[in-house]
Each structure stands twice: as C-alpha cells, then as structure tokens.
Computed example of a mutant assay.
Amino acid sequence: MTHNPLLQDQGALVFSHMGFYVEDLARMTQFYTQVMGFTQTDHGDLGPVQLVFLSRDPTEHHQVVLATGRPDNLNFNLINQLSFRVRDVATLRSVRDHALQTEGVHDMQCATHGNAVSIYFRDPEGNRIEVFLDTPWYCEQPLREVIDLDQPDEAIMARAEAIAKSRPKFQSRATWQAEMARRMGYVKD
C-alpha cells in the first residue's frame, strides 16, 4: 500500500461543503434560508441543473449547494442527516419552535447522546436535520435517549450528564479530545 500524505498533514484535507439534489429548488432555498439561517451567496444554471449556493460562514462561499434534478422515484433519502451545532439550550429550543411552525417540517424528536443534546426533524423534502449542543462530556456512541426540551436548562444538562455517566467509557470532552488529537497526529507523543 502506498503512503497517504493526508494522514500526515492534518490541514491537507479539510471538509468544506456538501451538495444535494432537490425536487423543489425554491421551497428548499426558502427553508434553508428562513428556518436554518443560511444566506444565499450565489445561484445560477450549470447546463440543465439549477444551483443555489448557501453559507452561514462569511469565509466560505458555500457550505450547502442545492441542485435541481432529484429523481422523484426514490423510496428513501440518500442523505442520512445534515448536522448543525448551536451554542446553548435556548438556541436549540428556538430552532425547534421555529421549525415546528414551518410547513412541511415533520418528525421532530428531542434526544440526548450524553455528549450532545439534539433535535432531529425532516425538512420539507424529508431530509433529516440534526441541530445539537455539545455537552462537556464524552461517552461511547451510539447512544440516543429521549429528552424533554421544555425542562429548565439545568435539568436538561443534568439528565444528559447522568446518561453520559452511566456509560462505561465516560470522561470529560477535554480528555477525549486530547486523546483524539494524539491519535490523529495533531499532538506527538
């Protein structure tokens, strides 16, 4: 097997954006700009395909590209999920409440993974979206337990911590991140 230089230089390969096909470009653009807070940075045609470029980061021209041409005969979504991080429980609740008021949004679920508190829902074309808040803990995954976002912030975080602590590999997120940095070659032994 040949040497892979991407394994040595952590900055050589950095995830930037994703694109996916949609059925209704206008509806999906409206959803991602009005509900998910993206800004449309560009749009246009590339041959027969219409594209909309969206970003939430002024240093990235686009983080999501919506493209026309999604086949209407698929019986499942090819996208497992799009995930977005928020800074606090209040923002998580706000996104949940706004999404629930949006036509076409469905399948809202609130959960904790111990290492995060999340909401999951489907956009108007059925793609799953996760919006999450990191917790200060690590616990082995997969783990998913229902959580009530209408509880006070302290109760939500206490429940997430208790669930995380119940797992055998529980540790602080900082400890886990330090080990991952070592394993990924960011920190030399």
Rank of each mutant, 00 (worst) to 15 (best):
A26L: 04
V49S: 11
C110Q: 15
N77L: 02
D153T: 13
V117Y: 02
E179L: 14
Q8A: 06
A178F: 05
V117E: 11
N115A: 12
A162N: 05
L78M: 13
D123R: 03
D42K: 10
Q8K: 06
T2V: 14
F53N: 03
N77S: 09
S166E: 05
A26P: 00
V64K: 11
T68V: 06
L133K: 03
E60C: 09
R93A: 10
A67W: 09
H62W: 01
R87D: 09
I129P: 00
E103N: 09
P48A: 15
Q109R: 12
A26I: 11
H106K: 07
R87Q: 15
F20G: 07
G69T: 09
F121R: 06
D150I: 08
I129V: 15
T68Q: 12
F170L: 06
H3Y: 12
V52N: 03
R159G: 02
R56Q: 09
R122F: 13
M184A: 03
V64C: 02
S16H: 13
G44R: 12
L13R: 11
V146Q: 14
V105M: 09
H113L: 05
M108G: 03
G69S: 00
D134R: 13
R70V: 05
T112I: 04
E125F: 08
Q81Y: 13
A178S: 15
T33L: 00
R183I: 14
H17G: 07
A174W: 06
C110V: 14
D107C: 02
P48R: 07
L133F: 09
V131G: 04
L78T: 10
R93Q: 13
A162K: 07
Q30A: 14
T175L: 14
D123H: 03
Q8E: 15
D123E: 09
D24A: 13
F20M: 11
T175V: 13
M18L: 15
P152V: 02
Q50I: 00
T39I: 08
T59E: 12
D42W: 11
D88L: 00
F53W: 08
